[in-house]
Amino acid sequence: MLRLLRFLWCTLAAEFKAIVVLPVRKLVLERRWSGLTLAVVACLGVIVLHAVHLTAWGHDFVRWIGGVQAGLPLPLALLRTPMSLYVPALHLPVWGGLTQLFIAFALAQLLLGWKRTLLVAYVATLAGTMSARLMIWLGPDHLLGIGADQAYVLDTGPSAAVVGLFSYIAVVKRAPVLFSLTSLMMIIESVAVPNLAGREHLIAIGAAMVMGFIRLYRESKGIEPGAFARALSRTAARAAGRAPRPAAPDPQALPATEWERQAAPEPAGRGSPTG
């Protein structure tokens, strides 16, 4: 038992150093305060929309720009999903979740960069939102299904993005203790309070896990970051008939004889003067 506790403590200390201490030290020593941009913007967005939501006119306005429900038409739900991250969940205190929101986005941006942070947060939120439609389609008689009345439940808040970011960081940084704690808390929440939000959190964790394992696989194969996006852009350009033209031959890349043959002027005819 003592060995197990010692192992857990050493593993947790190593994870805390890699995920928290080193990024914060780099932030302070190099004064890279721009690494907190997403965290500040996310917290300010939640605070502003919460204040607007409390006004007489803001209730309908906030629901119009960020209110997502499973019963909405799919294009409208996809359009509102990015703003739904900043709309506070009705059953959770706003100020209590701001600390988790700030820590999740700050650590993610320092460790992953702002592009990867936004991608993981959006995919985790979108996976949870889309899974609600599937669960309603399965129905309450199915083990994974829910009742049709859940289609009118307001599905907002950044909690799915937060648990998704923590799970993704835990996978790519090989932090099993952090991942176990995050997953265990969500499982306990889903069992203790069975609702739509708890199930969506589990789906968000699963989506973040898949993204994390894909990144580990790409790193193990030596695939450069952004290679997939560049391949997609080239494929889209060819499909649209705008494939880039081949570049001119580089003299350094061709053999000397071949380049000299292409660059040399054509020889004069047999009857031309030789001077």
Rank of each mutant, 00 (worst) to 15 (best):
G58E: 09
V20T: 03
L29Y: 03
K26N: 15
A51E: 14
R230T: 09
M135D: 15
I214T: 14
G145W: 11
L85W: 07
E224C: 09
D141N: 14
I103F: 09
A89T: 04
T125G: 05
A240K: 03
R199V: 04
E200K: 14
F61K: 10
V177F: 06
T37H: 02
R238L: 13
A106W: 00
T257C: 08
A132E: 07
E266D: 01
G113N: 12
L165Q: 02
Q69Y: 07
L126Q: 03
K221L: 14
L29Q: 13
W137Q: 15
L49S: 02
A148H: 13
L184F: 10
L44C: 13
A121P: 04
D141S: 14
T129L: 14
L74W: 06
E258S: 11
S34C: 13
V191G: 01
G35K: 01
D141T: 10
A39N: 00
L90Y: 08
L8F: 08
K115N: 07
V210K: 02
R116N: 10
T55M: 08
T81A: 11
R270P: 13
I223F: 09
A42N: 06
L181H: 01
L165V: 03
G226R: 04
F213T: 11
L138T: 11
K221T: 11
S190V: 02
S131C: 09
E15Q: 00
S183E: 04
M83F: 09
V162W: 00
R3H: 11
G157L: 01
A243P: 02
E189N: 11
A108G: 05
P23L: 08
Q69C: 10
R3K: 12
